[in-house]
Write a protein that binds this DNA or RNA. Structure first.
Lengths: 127, 127
DNA sequence: CCTTGACCTTCCAGTGACTGGAAGGATTAT
DNA sequence: ATAATCCTTCCAGTCACTGGAAGGTCAAGG
């Protein structure tokens, strides 16, 4: 199948699929006319990538996960380690964002937000 | 003061300060030897930028906030709008991360994580 | 048969916000 | 005098795409 249909099936932009090929995540065949030709296996892989990326895994994580997926003798512990590492990165990020949110929402509440120039938000940023 | 001390005072890497100059966020003077020369006002601005960036504002937001800061007649409502917009972006991001976290921690718990190849995480990613 | 439009190809450049490093000039300390 | 440290500019790389240009291919309609 051509890249357009592959994109639709996998839920990824065609551009992204070309990029994934370029960095060696997927290797579609080529038709005689030079068009990429995706099999169901390729689509499967692309969906795997799409789901992994949606869970926030980096491309390099995805590469590892894919290779573990294709290694029928992998230890599930290895997969778990990658996932746990990523989980704690997510936790860190959430904590950072929550801290920003707390500070900022406090400031927004303190600011009357009208036509007057007096502004606690700027006061805090410049303090 | 030279860039090294400015960096220390502002809590920003020298490289970052040069970058901020390049994109027009700060405009230090120059000494005769060609070195950048930072006044207290410049340091103040750099600290402002550092704090804003730490709250997650984009560089373009920072540019707006700085110009509002320097406009003594600004309406605090404008500042508040920028901050509120950013707050809701943070909220969106937190929600996304929490959703990823929920899915992933569920999978991690389901995976026994030992030497056997059977792995619910990969099953889910490939499902 | 020709054209139109939708598809496909490659290649190059840009995004955000830095960060690293090379090559070389200036200053300071010994 | 020399070594260490600081400063300068410029170029390239990061991450994961995304946009666009220039051009080849294919299916449908007139």
């Amino acid at each position: 199948m051509n890249i357009g249909e592959a994109a639709e099936q996998a839920g990824l932009p065609a551009k992204t699929i070309r990029y994934y090929e370029e960095i060696g995540l997927v290797a579609p065949d080529r038709s005689e006319n030079g068009y990429r030709d995706f099999s169901d296996t390729h689509i499967h892989k692309l969906k795997f990538l799409s789901r992994s990326r949606n869970l926030g895994f980096s491309i390099e994580d995805c590469r590892v996960l894919l290779s573990l997926y294709e290694d029928k003798n992998r230890a599930s512990g290895e997969v778990r380690d990658v996932a746990k590492e990523h989980l704690s990165a997510i936790e860190t990020k959430i904590a950072e964002l929550q801290s920003m949110h707390a500070t900022l929402s406090h400031l927004v509440h303190k600011c009357h937000g009208d036509d007057r120039p007096d502004c606690p938000i700027l006061d805090e940023l410049s303090a």
